[in-house]
Amino acid sequence: MVSETVISLRGVVALLGRFPALARLDLDVDAGEIVLVRGPNGAGKSTLLRVCAGLVPVDSGNARVLGHDLRADRRVIRRSVGYLGHDTGLYADLTVRDNVRFWARATGASGADADAAMVRLDLDTRLADIIVARLSAGQRRRVGLAVLLAQRPKVWLLDEPHAALDENGRDVLDEVLRQAAAGGAAVLVASHDHGRAEQLAHRSVSLAGGHVHSVREPGGTGVFGG
């Protein structure tokens, strides 16, 4: 496995209004690594992902993604990051194909990348020409994942990616993430589905109160950190 550090956070503080959603958080994620982020509601999991995506500003601390300073180069970082949050970022009145192709082209990928991603996610069926508003939550999740796959990001940030997916969809998701990591991408997954996500992850970190509470290596027990 490549040991290049892709995400490096040191003493990061991120405020949502006046509330410190991240409070002096430390975390490293290497290329090729899948890290599971755990923690109760309000622990800061989603904010951590949004900070790494450059969607929430860093108020203090040292934060680097792909070597770029998150405080100074947020826009540069965003181009290499794939983020799938609770929302899927899809246009409800466009078809599945229109959405995947638009977001692929918007992020510099080709139409062929978009088509390949749709095939990989089993979306090149009758679903392709259905508008997103008519899809189930699980199907939308699949389309959101296809958009990410077409982009081929160097950093994957996924918030509850298994939510709403059926068993087959979860298997496909896990396979896609393993392949992305094998290709050198860094993957950060926030999930409550610990059983499946722990099998997927190389390492898991627990957040509490906006900082890393413990780190669990594969096969190991909890180690206090942060």
């Binding site: 969607l55 983020y83 609770h86 899927t88 409800a92 918007a106 992020t107 958009v147």
Partner: peptide, 17 residues
């Protein structure tokens, strides 16, 4: 309004255009 639904505005920011 179409950019406000379902996290589209975040996706637009992330696209890097």
């Amino acid at each position: 309004a179409v950019e406000s639904d379902d996290g589209v505005r975040d996706a637009l920011r992330l696209a890097g255009m």
